[in-house]
Design a protein around this nucleic acid. Sequence first.
RNA 1: GGCCACGUGGCGGAGUGGUGACGCAGAGGUCUGCAAAACCUCGUACCCCGGUUCAAUUCCGGGCGUGGCCUCCA
Length: 456
Amino acid sequence: MMQIYDSLAREKRLFVPGDPARVTIYVCGPTVYDHAHIGNFRAAVVFDLLFRLLRRRYGEKAVVYARNFTDIDDKIIKASQETGVPISEITAKYARIYDEELAAFNCLPPTLKPCATGHIAEMISLTERLVAMGCAYVADGHVLFSVGKFREYGRLSGADADERLAGARVEVAPYKENAADFVLWKPSTPDEPGWESPWGRGRPGWHLECSAMIEKALGETIDIHGGGQDLKFPHHENEIAQSSCAHGGAPLARYWAHNGFLNMGADKMSKSLGNVALPRDLLKKHHGETLRFALLSAHYRQPLEWTDDLIEQSKKQLDRFYRLFNEAPPTEIVEAPESVVLSLEDDMNTPEAIAGLHDLRDIAMQLNGEPKRRAAARLKAAGELMGFFANDPAAWFKWSPQGEGLSAEAIDAKLAERAAARKAKDFKTSDIIRDELAAQGVVIEDGPQGATWRRG
RNA sequence: GGCCACGUGGCGGAGUGGUGACGCAGAGGUCUGCAAAACCUCGUACCCCGGUUCAAUUCCGGGCGUGGCCUCCA
């Protein structure tokens, strides 16, 4: 059985879905106004892993995974005003890039990718209900959620609203009845995008979309709601308040899962600090699978230092695995070994699972012939569960970012030259050629069947 | 100020009330023309101080330190 650390309960809990035939998971996706950074991708990769684990256990058809795009938001409006590019064009562009880059990280496409602008009617309906129930009020053209109407407000983030505001530096809008009340709907000026509503032309507040989309696509109570730690407050807290109130107290999610941050040196990686690494740039230098491995090398709830060294180490480890596949191509499809499954189902303990991968490799390396290939197949199945080993081994070792460096043909030509020199026992020439290639990042390996090469 | 994490060997990073995960780097060796790869061997790690215990890195209390959230944020 799977165990997940539930941020709301603050403990690891056995995962029991509401309906094993329809397991639902929702993860907060990006606001599409700019390139995502690698920290954003940690969440996507972590929940991709969870998606894979759930599919393995409950069946591919039984798991519904929704990840949204926030495509209406003040940052997007600003970006549009500054560049003159229409909002829809900006959001479509960055949503497409996000999907493409995640595909390079070998993330499966989510079952559903709802976007806010596709759910305006649902958001208005939800707001109307909350107003009718007395959980929300209209003030100065805004519709605000009344935090005082939800007794459990603050449970997820661990502090009640008043305590939070005590030492915080927040300016409170004058029309709020309570400083912690948050916007469900806000008015738009004529030059801002807006939709007609019972409260005039306006647009939704940030938190509303997730509640509305979850309600429509997945139901009142979903199994797992995921996202980054920073989303706990206020975003998830507010989602819980809206949804629970609208649904007569029904919980929004049975399990809340939050991933930790990537650090750049002493600080967390964030756009406001400007210390971000973008997948877009990283993918120019590194294979997506290497980056995925790096992201999964620490437990998802722990902070992870994002450094060049981490990426290098990840590549080296993957090389060791691919070397085995190169030597002993797995022939049969087998189940992922239990040891690795157990690690992963224990709150996604990826470091332990990776240690298990190394163990499986060591076992395979001691064998020969068919048993070796069977062992390799077991390793492959284990890695595939984590989204690794998606490449052909030969292609893996010859891969270079965007075709950089010496071409395969040029290298093969050099190799032929070197083979001739070696045959003539001209080791001096042979070594010069090897050094030249090494300078280009190409490593030569002499074997009984002649030399092979790989990019180091 | 409130809330929440975390502090493990040169580095990354798990885990556990009692025989030092795993990886990278490093040292020695086997193999090799030399390398590479592979294989073998090599590490007296758990922030500090108390407490509980036969036994604590692991539990409890305190301290120190680092980071996160409280404002858009994975």
